[in-house]
């Protein structure tokens, strides 16, 4: 669990991160979203102390991150940046082995871990372990970047616009892979993006930043339905298109097979209305029920949001 408390960064007179507080649950994905220059990267880098805060503090599982030397802290925190930053003079295997080597793992363990990660990221070890980064495609380099960050089984993975350099199709695949891997390793992820769609797609919770301030920190559906600030609604403008899309689909069309506890909704209700109902009632799922009382199926928040994806 990451607890960020009143974190502030000033450069001279300008405050680029202004008393930001939020909590990231263990095993969840938090996405920090905001326009360029809103302080997202600065906030992220204060978590692994690449930037030292002017005031405030960060707790990792309850322990102040300043209680150990910064470089030792960073070995426990995975870090992925846009443009991957792979070491061009080291092979893929050596790149992935970076942190385990720093931590002094046994060679056999390092080798096994490198093979495991290459396989998880669909890179055949026989082909890619000894390749140099420049011999890989952009998507492969990005995957090696994530594999390297995960190598030493970090408790937390920080990602700064990790998919920013990828073209849309590869980016969608990379996002799927991240969700898959996050599920598999149970890693706590904090990811920075300026892409609202990406935020909605990946985030269990989304932090909206503007001018160094955290405007809202909530579940994606909450941001849509109850934006705390006009800026948030503007940011979710894209997502609003998704909402319009949701107003065009009825609950009857989208219902999943099976029953559910939650509130009852009519098959003629739009998904937008159902989502609103779910967020309002705090339930995870709704029952789709005919006028005569027959259960037609169920709808979850995730299923509705998936229908809204462009």
């Amino acid at each position: 669990m990451i607890t960020v408390e009143k974190l502030t960064k000033r450069y001279g007179e300008t405050t680029v991160v202004d008393e930001v507080s939020f909590t990231v649950e263990r095993g969840s994905i938090t996405v920090i979203v905001g326009t360029s220059g809103s302080g997202k990267s600065t906030l992220l880098r204060m978590i692994n102390r690449l930037i030292e805060p002017s005031s405030g503090r960060v707790l990792l599982d309850g322990r102040d991150t300043r209680s150990e030397p910064a470089h030792l802290l960073r070995r426990r925190i995975g870090y992925v940046i846009q443009g991957h930053g792979l070491f061009p003079h080291r092979t893929v295997a050596e790149n992935i082995a970076t942190v385990p080597r720093l931590l002094g793992w046994q060679e056999a363990r390092i080798e096994a871990r490198v093979r495991e990660l290459l396989t998880v990221f669909s890179l055949d070890p026989a082909v890619y372990a000894q390749a140099l980064p420049h011999q890989l495609s952009g998507g492969q380099q990005q995957r090696v970047g994530v594999a390297r960050a995960l190598a030493a089984e970090p408790v937390v993975l920080l990602m700064d616009e990790p998919f920013g350099a990828l073209d849309p199709i590869i980016r969608a695949k990379a996002q799927d892979d991240l969700l898959d891997i996050q599920g598999r390793f149970g890693t706590t992820v904090v990811l920075v993006t300026h892409d609202m769609d990406e935020a909605f797609r990946l985030g269990d919770r989304v932090a909206v930043m503007s001018g160094g301030k955290l405007l809202q920190y909530d579940r994606p559906a909450e941001l849509l339905v109850h934006p705390a600030d006009p800026f948030v609604s503007r940011m979710t403008g894209l997502a609003e298109r998704a909402m319009r899309l949701l107003s065009l689909i009825t609950a009857g069309e989208a219902a999943l097979p099976g029953a559910a506890e939650g509130p009852a909704v009519a098959p003629t209700a739009t998904l937008r209305e159902v989502l609103s109902e779910l967020v309002w009632s705090g339930a995870d799922a709704a029952r789709v029920v005919d006028a005569d009382g027959t259960v037609r199926g169920r709808l979850t928040v995730a299923a509705i949001l998936a229908r809204g994806a462009p």
Binding site: H71, R74, R75, Y79, G83, H84, G85, P88, V99, L102
Partner: peptide, 15 residues
Amino acid sequence: VPGAVLEAASGMGMS
């Protein structure tokens, strides 16, 4: 030396 490479090196926990 590319900035991203340096940032990655520090971010990985190299002194």
